[in-house]
Nucleic acid binder design. Structure first.
Lengths: 189, 189
DNA sequence: CGATTTTTTGAATCATATCAACGTACGTGG
DNA sequence: CCACGTACGTTGATATGATTCAAAAAATCG
C-alpha cells in the first residue's frame, strides 16, 4: 500500500488522515501468471494499480489478431477506462504476464473517495492527462515512423519492460508481426 | 457562451451562479482563416473551446512532414494539453482552418475555477477520459487496419469534418500520403 | 526428457511511399 | 468580374517496408 500512497503524493499532497482513508478503500488482489483480470465483454468495475508484477491490456480484432494497448508494471495503472467510465462491456482483455499483486478500488468507492478526499479527483485528472499526452505521442509515431524507429524508441523508453515480456508481444505493441520484429533485430545486430 | 455552458451541463449539473462564474472566466477570441493559435515551442497557457469554426492541431517532424493530431469544430476543445499542463514548450501547432471563434480560459484562472466551482474538476476529468478512450481506439486502428479501412472509418465518424477540410489534411490525419488517399478514393468509386 | 511456446529464416506478395508531371480549382489583386 | 498564380488533387512508374506462409531452430516449462 505504501507504493500507492507514495505514487499519489508525487502529484498531490495528502494528510495522514487522507492517506489512511485511501489505504482503507483499496483492496489487494494476487494474480497468477497468465491469470485474466478482465475479459472482453465484461464490465470493468475497478481502477487498478500494480504493486508488483507485469500485466498487459490487449484486444482481439475481427480477424483474430491480438493488439497490445498497454503494458503495465509496478507503479502503473491498468484499466479498461472505457468500460470503467461508461459501465459498458470492456473492449479488451487484461492479463497478468507474471505473478502479480494489484490494489484495486471499486468505481463506487472511488466516487465516494472523490467526496471525502477531493484531491483524488485532481490526482486522477492529472494522471489521465499525462496518459493522454503519452498516447498522443505514440499515435503520431505509429503513423509517421518506420517500425525500426518505433522499436528503437520503445527500447529506449521501456528497456525494463522489453526484458520482461515475450518478443512477440513487443511486436504486437508496436503494431508489426513477430517475424518482422525478428528481422529488424537481426539487422540491428 | 451558451454553447459552452450547455456543453458542460451534458456532463455535470451547474447552478445558475456557477454558470455565471464560468461565463465570466472565459474570454472570447476571433480567428481569421489560417490564423495560428499556437506555435510549436511556445508555452500554451489556455484551455480552448471552439464556439464556431474549424481548427487543426498538428506537428512537423524532423523530416519536415506535417502530422495532424486532431481536428476540432464547434463544441470541441483544442489544446496542446502537454504544454498547458507542464508549461513546457508546445510540441505542435494549432491553426484555424476557417474563420473561427473560440472561448478560452487561462491556466491560472482555471485553477481558480476548480476551487470556486469544484465540479469543473470533474468535468475536465470526464472530458479527458473520453478523449483518452477515443485516442486509444485510434491508436489501435492505426496499427491494425489498412489505410482504406481507416479512411472509411474516418468518413463514417467525421463526415462533417471531411467536407470542411482539404483532402491532404485528411491524409495527414490518417497517416498516409495525399497521393495514396487520392488513389484509395478512386478505387472506392 | 518431451511437449509446448517462442523465435528465426527466406520466398512470395501486398500495401504504401516517393517522385515527377499534369490537371483543376480557387482566391486575390487589378 | 476576370485573369492569373498558387494551392490542391490526380496519375502512373518505380521503390521500399511490411506481411504472409511454411518450416525449422531455439528456448522454456512441467
Amino acid at each position: 500500500m505504501q507504493l500507492l500512497i507514495q505514487h499519489i503524493q508525487e502529484q498531490v499532497s495528502l494528510s495522514d488522515e487522507e492517506s489512511h482513508l485511501i489505504s482503507q478503500t483499496f483492496t489487494s488482489k494476487v494474480l497468477d501468471k497468465k491469470e485474466m483480470l478482465l475479459f472482453k465483454g465484461d464490465v470493468s468495475n475497478h481502477m487498478r494499480f500494480i504493486e508488483k508484477g507485469c500485466l498487459r491490456a490487449y484486444n482481439i480484432d475481427d480477424a483474430g489478431n491480438e493488439h497490445i494497448l498497454q503494458f503495465g508494471i509496478e507503479g502503473w495503472w491498468v484499466n479498461d477506462l472505457f468500460s470503467c467510465i461508461t459501465q459498458q462491456p470492456a473492449q479488451g482483455f487484461i492479463q497478468a504476464l507474471e505473478p502479480s499483486r494489484i490494489l484495486q478500488i471499486h468505481r463506487e468507492s472511488l466516487d465516494e473517495l472523490f467526496k471525502t478526499v477531493p484531491v483524488m479527483e485532481r490526482f486522477f485528472r492529472l494522471k489521465i492527462q499525462s496518459a493522454y499526452v503519452a498516447l498522443q505521442e505514440r499515435t503520431i509515431h505509429s503513423m509517421s515512423k518506420t517500425a525500426e524507429q518505433r522499436y528503437l524508441d520503445f527500447r529506449n523508453k521501456y528497456r525494463n519492460i522489453e526484458q520482461r515480456v515475450p518478443q512477440y508481444m513487443v511486436a504486437s505493441y508496436l503494431g508489426i508481426t513477430p517475424e518482422h520484429l525478428s528481422s529488424l533485430r537481426k539487422k540491428l545486430l
